[in-house]
């Protein structure tokens, strides 16, 4: 699954930079700079929901088999501390997600560095960072929903997750999150806390 996501990330990048190259050839670099700077066009909008999808899929693929086959219950009763088991499992899943995002983000920055001035690169970073944070948050929220033992609470968690993730996608205007970018990881922390809450409920066998 991770390899599939990596392949999709690569293909998406190839597509985005081919599209940009085409714009450079047809309209010229000066025109492309002009529409980015003065008409607030954003060239990487197609990237918008990829991190969200990648985070959600990683969470689902990691935890759904564990839940369906009741392996999580067994895992939490291994001769290791519950904290350690959960930390290792989440560290693996989130680590893979973050690595995938870092790889894609680094490739994006490298491409931008060649063609654009720092001001445009900074604006792009402010625009795409919330999307990557949404992906990481989606991973934790998905995990929390999967681990949560009661369907009623799963529904509540799902609604809360939609609300929290929506915050990352309120505006598509370039660099709209500039003023609150430093505070957005707090939403990811809320995502992590929901996982801890779900694990506690799972461990104590809460049914409601």
């Amino acid at each position: 699954m991770v390899i599939s996501l990596l392949a999709v990330a690569l293909m998406l990048h190839l597509y985005l930079f081919s599209k940009m190259g085409r714009a450079f050839r047809i309209a010229g670099k000066e025109h492309v700079w002009d529409v980015i700077v003065n008409r607030n066009q954003f060239f990487f909008s197609d990237l918008r929901f990829f991190p969200l999808l990648a985070g959600t899929l990683t969470g689902l693929f990691q935890f759904i088999p564990e839940i369906i086959q009741n392996r999580l219950k067994l895992m939490l009763h291994l001769p290791l501390t519950e904290k350690r088991i959960i930390t290792c499992t989440l560290a693996y899943g989130s680590g893979v997600t973050i690595l995938l995002f870092l790889f894609q983000f680094a490739a994006l920055l490298t491409g931008l560095q060649i063609h654009f001035a720092n001001e445009i690169i900074i604006s792009t970073v402010y625009t795409v960072l919330p999307w990557y944070l949404a992906g990481i948050t989606a991973y934790f929220l998905c995990t929390a929903i999967c681990i949560e033992p009661s369907w009623k609470h799963r529904l509540v968690l799902l609604l809360i997750s939609i609300g929290l993730l929506k915050i990352f996608f309120i505006s598509g205007f370039p660099a709209a999150y500039q003023k609150i970018i430093a505070y957005l990881p707090l939403i990811t922390l809320i995502g992590i806390s929901t996982v801890i809450h779900s694990v506690i409920r799972f461990k104590t066998g809460m049914q409601d």
């Binding site: 000066e30 025109h31 700079w33 002009d34 980015i36 700077v37 003065n38 001035a117 001001e119 445009i120 604006s123 402010y126 205007f173 370039p174 660099a175 709209a176 500039q178």
Partner: peptide
Amino acid sequence: NTPGIKLYPLFESMGKRVDLKMPGDVFR
């Protein structure tokens, strides 16, 4: 109150043609 990219074009103000032309560079 809008985020903006601080790059600006400087046009030729005394161009010989009626229409303005893109200057070929931007300034910061």
